[in-house]
């Protein structure tokens, strides 16, 4: 009979795996017939089972103490109670800020597009409105004809005005004064071109010197009454600029004042500042542990 200590390592492994139910089907097919044939192997199996049973019967050693960790033991200190609150508030403010910027971008694009359309309408209206007094004066020339007579500089000036998005309404009120001042000028000009002078004055900002000269010369030939009529017509056609237009104009011309900022922009600045303040406080609280 084979003694326990005479078993090969392979047989020991087979028996051990068999006890734990970890033996493969193939190993099982090999072992079971041998257990029937070899009493020593069967005895070894029973002895091994007894060992496993006795090991499993060992009671758990009672713990001398709890092993839960304290902040001091692991070298950390708990964060301040307010930390999660500030963290949440910062996140919320940041989200609000991003939303505001997004809203501002969308609204801004829409506003620029609509303002562009309004501006071009105003410019066109001003262009159309200007020749009307000439017709009343009996010049017999249309605005288009007069326009043909002008040199390319005037056309360029108009394009630059439209391109710079400077509303003609801003310049229009000053136009009659300019015309009246030029009334004293001795050089007579064809009446058909006089009213066109109103248009060329708009191009003053663009520095078109020939246009200004042209306007001065032509405006001098208008009599005071007809000029006043022209001015009134233009004033009635072109409404005075609103606050939004002024703000927009100031924006586009680079002049800035706090009052000119839209509410949305002010909100952006406010919420952005809040995000910075809250973020700073959150970081500060994070370092302050209790």
């Amino acid at each position: 009979m084979k003694e326990y200590n005479q078993l090969s390592t392979r047989d020991l492994e087979l028996l051990s795996a068999y006890i734990d139910g970890e033996l493969s089907a193939r190993g099982l097919a090999r072992l079971l017939p041998r257990l029937d044939r070899e009493p020593g192997l069967k005895q070894a199996l029973e002895e091994m089972k007894a060992v496993v049973q006795q090991l499993g019967s060992l009671p758990e050693a009672p713990m001398p103490r709890s092993f839960t960790l304290t902040p001091d033991v692991v070298g950390i200190r708990s964060r301040h109670r307010a930390y999660p609150v500030f963290q949440f508030a910062t996140a919320l403010a940041a989200i609000a800020f991003v939303a505001l910027v997004g809203l501002d971008t969308v609204v801004g694009q829409f506003s620029v597009a609509s303002r562009g359309a309004v501006m071009s309408d105003v410019v066109q209206e001003a262009l159309v409105a200007a020749p009307q007094p000439e017709a009343e004066l009996g010049t017999g020339e249309t605005f288009a004809q007069a326009d043909d007579q002008r040199d390319g500089v005037d056309v360029l000036a108009e394009e630059e005005v439209a391109g710079a998005l400077v509303p003609p309404a801003l310049e229009a009120p000053g136009e009659p004064d300019e015309a009246l001042r030029s009334e004293a000028s001795p050089s007579p000009q064809p009446p058909a071109e006089k009213a066109v002078g109103g248009e060329t004055i708009i191009g003053e900002g663009a520095g078109e010197q020939p246009a200004v000269t042209y306007a001065d010369e032509h405006a001098a030939t208008l009599d005071a009454d007809s000029m006043n009529a022209v001015t009134e017509t233009q004033k009635s056609d072109i409404e005075p600029p609103g606050d939004a237009d002024l703000a927009f104009a100031q924006e586009t011309t680079g002049r800035w004042s706090p009052a000119s900022l839209p509410i949305l922009r002010l909100l952006e600045i406010g919420v952005g500042s809040l995000v910075l303040i809250l973020g700073g406080l959150t970081l500060w609280i994070r370092t302050k542990r209790i």
Partner: peptide, 16 residues
């Protein structure tokens, strides 16, 4: 694990 466990059990039996 299988191999070490089998030998551990074998040695435990001898020791006991």
């Amino acid at each position: 694990v299988k191999s070490r466990l089998a030998r551990a059990r074998g040695r435990m039996r001898e020791c006991l």
